[in-house]
């Protein structure tokens, strides 16, 4: 982020995705902006229902519509606004330049089709290769992600692979078209710790090899600490803090980030006493008040927090936070 001369591969500006429900409008993603640079790994952390996944489905234009709709903002990929592309143009980007790995490797592969069929389908669609060449490429990719005897296993069905192996297949598939951006949506949540370590290592290695930018969505702060260069913390549909990983963990600014970091039990420290915990529940995203959505759970809440939403503002170089503790309250105090 410090290198401002570089151009971002992906620029998201004020993205807004809403869902229409019988009870009202759910503002799942509200004015989210970020830049992603080549070779960078960006983490998006937050709890369930905070809009992490919807943000990324919006980038891929995979929001089911209705009820969902991207109501505002821009997503610039190589200077083109993805949100304005035709469906055909979008298809040529999806799975090709921007690809995605999903959380659950059990359900994201088609159980009726051989791995080879599924991989060849993607490759033939996006590259000028014959089926036989595509299969060769598929085997090559499987070998790269560490699947033993790929020339045999390529003709297996998904159920013949274990969870970790299936996630490897997903990674092979998503990188088979030399994607510029890889969106990993909780890629290791369904996996065991020892397998998680394998998969994270693999993503790191391949991202470096192919110069792929990675967006890593997770709720696990440990994964963020090990994988990401920059982190965005999301709460109730908005980014509340953006920083590079070191400073975020070194000195978290937003009370929510502080709470999140403090409420994780840690192996490397003896925690004899009580764990810190954020009281209460995350808010319902329907009819959010027009003020800081974290204030009912915040122990530092002030009057102004209940009246006005703090805009995400740069407080230090490369650090943005949306909290009145760090913002200039002038012009609002006399209310």
């Amino acid at each position: 982020m410090s290198d401002t001369t570089k151009k971002p591969v992906l620029q998201v500006k004020n993205l807004q995705t809403y869902f229409k429900t019988d009870d009202g409008i759910v503002k799942a993603v509200e004015r989210v902006s970020f830049d992603l640079f080549i070779g960078q790994t960006l983490g998006i952390v937050g709890e369930s229902g905070c809009g992490k996944s919807v943000t990324n489905l919006s980038l891929m234009r995979l929001i089911p519509s209705p009820p969902g709709k991207i109501v505002g903002g821009e997503v610039l990929f190589k200077d083109k606004d993805i949100l304005k592309l035709s469906n055909a143009e979008m298809r040529s980007i999806r799975g090709n330049s921007i690809s995605m790995i999903f959380q659950d490797p059990m359900t994201s592969l088609n159980p009726f089709l051989r791995i080879s069929t599924q991989m060849v389908e993607t490759i033939v669609l996006h590259q000028a290769l014959s089926k036989a060449e595509a299969k060769k490429k598929a085997i090559e990719m499987l070998e790269l992600v560490g699947i033993p005897a790929p020339e045999k296993r390529v003709d297996d069905y998904p159920h013949q692979f274990s969870g970790g192996m299936r996630q490897r297949v997903m990674i092979a598939m998503s990188l088979s078209c030399n994607a510029d951006i890889l969106i990993a949506d909780e890629p290791t949540t369904a996996l065991d710790v020892t397998i998680q370590a394998q998969i994270l290592e693999l993503i790191k290695e391949l991202a470096q090899k192919f110069h792929t930018a990675v967006i890593m969505i997770t709720h696990d702060l440990g994964v963020v600490a090990g994988m990401c260069d920059n982190v965005c913390v999301m709460y109730a549909g908005r980014f509340v803090e953006k920083a590079d990983t070191d400073s975020l963990f070194g000195k978290p600014l937003h009370p929510y980030t502080q709470g999140l970091i403090n409420s994780v039990p840690r192996m490397d420290k003896t925690n004899g006493g009580k764990l810190f915990s954020i009281e209460g529940q995350p808010p319902n995203l329907i009819n959010l008040p027009d003020c800081c959505s974290f204030h009912p759970r915040c122990d530092k809440a002030m009057d102004i927090c209940r009246k006005k939403y703090p805009q995400l503002t740069e407080v230090e170089k490369g650090r943005q936070v949306a909290c009145w503790l760090y913002l200039d309250k002038e012009g609002t105090e006399n209310e």
Binding site: G222, A225, G226, F249, I261, R266, M267, D268
Partner: peptide, 12 residues
């Protein structure tokens, strides 16, 4: 133990 991530980038 060594596979479990620790939420501290310096240690990681």
């Amino acid at each position: 133990m060594s596979a479990a991530p620790i939420p501290d980038p310096q240690i990681e």
